[in-house]
Every structure is written in structure tokens, then in C-alpha cells.
Design a binder for these strands. Structure first.
Length: 212
DNA sequence: TAGGCCATCTGGTCCT
DNA sequence: AGGACCAGATGGCCTA
């Protein structure tokens, strides 16, 4: 997959050659974007066959006077322009979203370094990572706030975390909220969290047996 | 070859 | 009215 990153400009220039970004763009593989855009409700495959034939017949039959009215052409053109602009905006939006995901990947520890988490893995791992960090802070606070508490007694206290990060299913996968129910969590759990594990792509990859 | 992941297009809906 | 956001559809690439 070759993705050429291109800065998009917003307005009219985008209408000229916006599709030349990704070689595998379905739109680019079509012989004519115009045809796709002129039949917006159809899937790409529906462009071929009956509808097209009908169209060509119609244009032959009424080649001279009764073609699409002038205003009809204008409406089509306006619709087409709007669609192309909307496509460009949507593409930009997704690129921004992907940039944000890349930024997120950069601050997440992965092993090996060049392992790239998928989108869903990135989100899930970030979720667990944040939880683990906050849990670490919480335990540290416990230690320093209560001098009488020895570190050894901490492991016995079995703090109740809000997430089961070590499980193979997402604690929030049901509806996106944290589940109060949780397994035992201790400093050793958190330390386990940081231990590299043998996984195909990354020791922290969710959905591959580590967490979420 | 099937399945996973991804980019893109598209129409609908909501918001400003 | 136009833009942002969303979800479904589609097709390409990659890997087991």
C-alpha cells in the first residue's frame, strides 16, 4: 500500500485533481469520476450495464433539443461540485484523524520500536496505558501519604482499580465506559504490565492476549 | 484463499 | 446553506 501524503487545499483547486492521492483509490480506478458522481446513490458496480445503456439511448434519442435542460445541467454541476468538495473535506478529516492517531502512537511504548499498532489497538492500548499510569500514581500516593503503610502491606491491601486491563476483553468494550468491577490489582500487576511479553507484533498489543 | 486492516466515497443527520 | 461528523459500502493490499 503506497500512500502519498499530500497537503490539500480547500477550495476550487481541489476540484481539479483531488483523486490523485492514493493509487488504490477506488475512484481512481474507475474510468470516469464523473460517472460515479452523477449517480450518487449507486454503488460503483451499478454504474455499468442497464443504467448506462439507458442513458446512452436517451442521449441519442434526444440529442438535439430535449436533452437535460440547461438548469438541469447546472444543478448536476452544482451537485457534483458539492460532492467533490465534501469528499475532499472528508479525506482531510480522516487524514487529521490519522495524524492524531500517529501522535498517540508516538507516546505509547511499543516493542519493537517500529511495530505499528492498528487503529483499534492504539486506542485500546492508550486506554490501558493511561489507566496503568494513573494506577501507578495512585499507589505511589498511598505510599507517601501514609508513612505507616509499608510497601509490603500495600500488596495485601489489594486496591480495587476501575479497569481490568489485564483481561483479554476490553473493560470498556461493552459501551465505552469503565467497569467498576475489576480483578485484583496490585503493584505486581502494574509491573507485569510493563514487562515485555512475547507477541507477534508488540508486547502491548491488545487483542492478542495481553489486555483489552 | 480467507480474513484483517485500511483509504476512500457516499448519503444522511446535526450543527452553526 | 454549508461544513462536520458518522456509518455503510467498496475495493486494494497484506499475511497466515
Amino acid at each position: 500500500m503506497v500512500l502519498v501524503k499530500v497537503e490539500y487545499r480547500d477550495e476550487e483547486e481541489d476540484l481539479i485533481s483531488p483523486m490523485s492521492i492514493s493509487p488504490q483509490s477506488p475512484a481512481q480506478l474507475c474510468s470516469s469520476d464523473d460517472e460515479r458522481l452523477l449517480s450518487p446513490a449507486s454503488s460503483p458496480s451499478s454504474l455499468h450495464g442497464k443504467e448506462q445503456d439507458e442513458g446512452s439511448k436517451r442521449s441519442k434519442r434526444s440529442s438535439r433539443s430535449r436533452g437535460p435542460s440547461r438548469s438541469g445541467e447546472v444543478v448536476m454541476k452544482v451537485k457534483k461540485t458539492r460532492r467533490i468538495k465534501a469528499n475532499n473535506r472528508e479525506r482531510n478529516r480522516m487524514h487529521h484523524l490519522n495524524s492524531a492517531l500517529d501522535s498517540l502512537r508516538e507516546v505509547l511504548p511499543t516493542l519493537p520500536e517500529d511495530a505499528k499498532l492498528t487503529k483499534i489497538e492504539t486506542l485500546r492500548f492508550a486506554h490501558n496505558y493511561i489507566w496503568a499510569l494513573s494506577e501507578t500514581l495512585r499507589l505511589a500516593d498511598q505510599i507517601y501519604d501514609s508513612p505507616s503503610t509499608s510497601p509490603s502491606s500495600l500488596s495485601d491491601s489489594s486496591p480495587s482499580p476501575s479497569i481490568s486491563w489485564a483481561s483479554t476483553s476490553s473493560p470498556s468494550s461493552s459501551c465505552g465506559s469503565f467497569s467498576p468491577a475489576s480483578p485484583s490489582s496490585s503493584t505486581s500487576d502494574i509491573m507485569d504490565y510493563w514487562q515485555p511479553q512475547d507477541h507477534h507484533r508488540s508486547p502491548f498489543v491488545p487483542g492478542r492476549g495481553v489486555f483489552i
